[in-house]
Design a protein around this nucleic acid. Structure first.
Length: 926
RNA sequence: GCUGGAGUGGCGGAAUCGGCAGACGCAUCGGACUUAAAAUCCGAAGGGUGGUAAUCCCCCCGUACGGGUUCAAGUCCCGUCUCCAGCACCA
């Protein structure tokens, strides 16, 4: 019985593509290029889950489609294989991370290849391969050898850095320090996020709510000397150049907010210390227009002036407060946001605009890491300051006139606000600035301050420099050496490893466990650490790079993956860049994409790449959830309605009483829908919880693609993932849905193959007779629809169209090749194995991978008759079967000739007739 | 709290520009084929405790909820609710 058996078709064609190098990409300048890229995976030990192939299938379909359209397509795949999980796993199991990484990569490759993606495997890259990380290290050195010219707004070679004469006069050591302080890769002692459990520092971006993004371990702030990358220099361009790319607005917005540009002024407040000394407090404000409303100041508890400004009488209370806050984690500091805390230092500052004396407080709602770590507080116009002023009974002075509507809504008066008025408005109680609108006043007051030397215009960013060093083993070693003198002490001189000595390979280590202290494990590689070069002795830099390093530039290496002499060849770069379409998960909206853009801009400034932005179009695929679960609740064996229960997927508790309830997983047959909710079939008063959850090992709802391929084949998996819904949407898995598309592929198979025959062969119904007019019309309609939907990445509706066409063809006794063969080509990007099999079955020798894409003939799309609904007062009362292309008058006449309409028109007259050609007739009657 | 996105049959979803709501698929039901079952093929189906002898046909209601604009609203406007995601003392 020659039924549709993917298990016999799919491996055959995968082997064919591999041995014929069908998808090997050769740069061809005579064709338009199309670079279509997936976010390469981290090869975890768990293997592929069904979320991975969602994006991969979408890009594969488009890659295959573009090839058929005659594009020179680059579609590569590789591995982001450095990083914490491999190392954690290695530590737990005692296997070397290289071994587990290799095993995981092999498993991922096997799984990905079993899905029939058309990657050019000759271009595979692996970030842990020394041939790859040689160039990661090379780019790091480029950062090290670059300074940012703010005037020219670009990174330039460090050799071009102008040395101020005063520095030059101080000698070589001062010059070296000056240069080091300007490099884009630099060392600084700063408070960093230290994670004890992971034994490493983490970037701000890797810390979520005071815990590590990976593993959720607690993170504390300690000062450490660390390597950083000066991404802040690129802040402005990273914002501005978002205008150049076709990305989802949400991602652009997230990046803009992460960079967090705010425009304002830095203002200087003189303050009187306890010893009679005058200290200068610098604050940053975005609202200099409210300066007259500043009634107190707040320093972050960590602010350097706190000690010298605290009066003896306040010493104890201030020190106690500082100690308390230092013990709080970032998490606790934000969690306790509801009530503001703080203490008075005893000192007063002078408001520079009106000379008023205002008290200086310390409070942990002011962050040491942002702006200057100090603020002028304007309680009338800032919510946080208002709350603080209320708590401690501080003055509130209104300097922007609230609108009447606002005063009424909040029950405030100008003199007595019930909450802060943070809108712009007319400036009042501000002497010479009265009557201006906030925006004008902001500029005027800034100019006024600048003229008096009391302040200046200032732009601040939330973005911090990128903490780039990690105290872990499984990462790229820094290609830097610290000189030591004969006694073994550091001289302060740092030299890069010579380009010809790259890659600087990771040393073999027996024990790569983090020590739990900030000393990196690489220090244990005694022989590796000490180097003598050109008569100088060095100790190597012991930190390794974060996982992001390798993924920052992999899209460039794919263009020229084996090049031993350069990270990529210029002409190749010019041909292929930028990436035309980049598809991946939304979880990389900030981190990976921001870091990559930063590195790309460095390479652009230094002349190694030809575009300012690497990724022209970006699409985030949505998450695939597990199968929908129906959950009922029981207490002491008795059903409880879901409306009585608090349940978010984990523990279920009775509302108010906090009694934990039993959770019962229910089969679909046991529940039914009643109104808005699902209820128990046996007792419709019991409401049931119904939802789909994120796939996770602990929930046990993970779908392994291998199982799906074994049961239904790769084509069914691909097709189902695309048929589920729009690519960007979050959607629940359904194994029955996979079965549905499998049945569809079976129907396609049977269009060609007679299942009742002895062996696989073309069905006798398939013939070379000309196709009927209606068949051709539907074929071309399908071609049109599938093509349009591919261009718009609406894969689900394209598949629907192909299903409809198949449903039309199935009952036909005669199946002309002219109706079938173009259809194989339409299906090919989605179900390539089946399509190749059918293509060869109808007599082709070659793969269809480069067959020209079918073109819709518009002249064949016109139907003989179309149906026109006729409405009376907006309600459909009749349908007309008419030829297309009738005029307004003809349509109106046809509608009025309809017996049903005539019956309804008795005793009525037409007020107005709305006629949309070939669409509808609507009669407004009286 | 702020900022996005979403809410359509039993389920996933479609309706691309304001013009026939529910395409396509799943689940369900009926029929054909079969000794029987599976598979396959053909067909039905939003709801109505509305009219009718009737499965034909007609009528009413229906895109989270309440209003509005329009000849016409899932689609546009105003307000409310719920869910998802991101951000969260950034001065």
């Amino acid at each position: 019985m020659p039924s549709y058996l993917p298990a016999s078709i799919e491996p055959k064609w995968q082997a064919f593509w591999e041995s014929n190098k069908t998808f090997k990409t050769v740069t061809d300048a005579t064709k338009p290029k199309y670079y279509i890229l997936d976010m390469f995976p981290y090869p975890s030990g768990a293997g592929l889950h069904v979320g991975h192939p969602e994006g991969y299938t979408a890009t594969d379909i488009l890659a295959r489609y573009r090839r058929m359209l005659g594009f020179n397509v680059l579609h590569p795949m590789g591995w982001d294989a450095f990083g914490l999980p491999a190392e954690q796993f290695a530590i737990e199991t005692g296997t070397h991370p290289r071994a587990t990484t290799e095993r995981n990569i092999n498993n991922f490759r096997r799984q990905i290849q079993s899905l029939g993606f058309s990657y050019d495997w000759d271009r595979e890259v692996d970030t842990t391969n020394p041939g790859y990380y040689k160039w990661t290290q090379w780019i790091f050195l480029l950062l090290y050898e670059t300074w940012y010219d703010q005037a020219g707004k670009r990174g330039r070679p460090i050799s071009e850095l102008p040395i101020p004469p005063t520095v030059a006069a101080e000698g070589d050591c001062a010059v070296r320090q000056f240069i080091d302080s300007k490099r884009l890769a630099f060392q600084a002692e700063i408070p960093v996020n230290w994670c004890q459990v992971l034994g490493t520092v983490l970037a701000n971006e890797e810390v979520i709510d005071g815990r590590s993004e990976r593993g959720g371990h607690p993170v504390i702030r300690i000062p450490l000397k660390q390597w950083q990358l000066r991404i802040t220099e690129y802040a402005e361009r990273l914002i501005d150049d978002l205008d150049l790319v076709d990305w989802p607005d949400s991602v652009k917005k997230m990046q803009r907010e992460w960079i967090g540009k705010s425009d304002g002024a830095e203002v200087v407040f003189p303050a009187l210390g306890p010893l009679g000394q005058t200290e200068t407090i610098r604050v940053f404000t975005t609202r200099p227009d409210t300066l007259f409303g500043a009634t107190y100041m707040v320093l972050a508890p960590e602010h350097p002036l706190v000690d010298s400004l605290t009066y003896p009488s306040q010493k104890v209370i201030v020190n106690t407060y500082r100690e308390q806050t230092s013990r709080k984690s970032d998490l606790e500091r934000t969690d306790l946001a509801k009530t503001k805390t703080g203490v008075f230092t005893g000192a007063f500052a002078q408001n520079p605009v009106n000379g008023v004396k205002i008290p200086i407080w310390i409070a942990d709602y002011v962050l040491s890491g942002y702006g200057t770590g100090a603020i002028m507080a304007v309680p009338a116009h800032d919510e946080r300051d208002f709350e603080f002023a209320q708590t401690f009974g501080l003055n509130i002075v209104t300097v922007v006139q609230p609108t009447e509507a606002w005063l009424e809504k909040t029950g405030s008066t100008r003199e007595n606000l019930t909450e802060a008025y943070s809108e712009m408005g007319e400036v009042i109680a501000s002497e010479e600035f009265n009557g201006l609108d906030s925006l004008t006043c902001k500029a005027r007051i800034t100019d006024w301050l600048a003229a008096k030397g009391l302040g200046k215009k200032r732009i601040h960013y939330k973005l911090r420099d990128w903490l780039f060093s990690r105290q872990r083993y499984w990462g790229e070693p820094f290609p830097l050496m610290h000189e030591i003198d004969q006694a073994g002490n550091y001289t302060g001189r740092i030299d890069p490893v010579d380009i010809e000595d790259l890659p600087l390979q990771l040393p073999e280590l027996e024990d790569y466990k983090p020590s739990g202290r900030p000393e990196p494990p690489l220090g244990k590689a005694i022989d590796w650490v000490v180097v003598t070069k050109k008569g100088r002795s060095y100790r190597r830099e012991l930190n390794t790079m974060p996982q992001w390093a390798g993924s920052c530039w992999y899209y460039l290496r794919f263009i020229d993956p084996q090049n031993p002499n350069a990270f990529l060849e210029t002409e190749e770069e010019k041909h292929w860049m930028p990436v035309d379409l980049y598809v991946g998960g939304a979880e990389h909206a900030v981190l990976h994409l921001l870091y990559s853009r930063f590195w790309h801009k460095l390479l652009y400034d230094r002349g190694y790449v030809s575009h300012a932005e690497p990724f022209q179009k970006l699409v985030n695929q949505g998450m695939i959830l597990g199968e929908t679960e129906y959950t009922g609740f029981k207490v002491n064996g008795a059903w409880v309605s879901a409306k009585e229960v608090d349940f978010d997927g984990g523990v279920a508790r009775l509302k108010k009483k906090h009694i934990e309830t039993d959770k019962i997983r229910l089969a679909e047959e046991m529940v039914e829908k009643k109104g808005e909710f699902f209820v128990l079939r046996e007792d419709v008063n019991i409401r049931i919880d119904s939802r789909a959850y994120k796939m996770s090992k602990s929930r046990g709802n993970v779908i392994n693609p291998d199982e799906v391929v074994n049961a239904f084949g790769a084509d069914s998996l691909r097709l189902y993932e695309m048929f589920m819904g729009p690519l960007e949407a979050t959607k629940p898995w359904s194994m029955r849905g996979v079965e549905g598309v499998f049945r569809f592929l079976g129907r396609v198979w049977r269009l060609f193959v007679d299942e009742r025959a002895e062996s696989v062969g073309l069905s006798p119904a398939v013939n070379s007779e000309p196709a009927e007019k209606e068949t051709l019309r539907l074929l071309h309609k399908t071609i049109q629809k599938v093509t349009d939907d591919l261009d718009g990445m609406r894969f689900n509706t394209a598949i629907s169209a192909m299903m409809e066409y198949t449903n039309y063809l199935t009952p036909l006794a005669s199946k002309p090749r002219a109706a079938l063969e173009p259809f194989i080509l339409l299906l090919a990007p989605y179900a390539p194995h089946l399509a190749e099999e059918l293509w060869s079955l109808v007599g082709n020798q070659k793969s269809l991978a480069y067959e020209p894409w079918p073109k819709a003939d518009r002249t064949l799309l016109v139907a003989d008759t179309i149906e026109i609904p006729v409405q009376i007062a907006g309600k459909i009362r009749a349908r007309l079967a008419v030829p297309p292309g009738l005029s307004h008058e003809e349509l109106k006449a046809a509608a009025l000739a309809d017996p049903k309409i005539q019956a309804l028109m008795i005793g009525k007259s037409i007020q107005k007739a709305i006629i949309v050609l070939d669409k509808l007739v609507n009669l407004v009657v009286a």
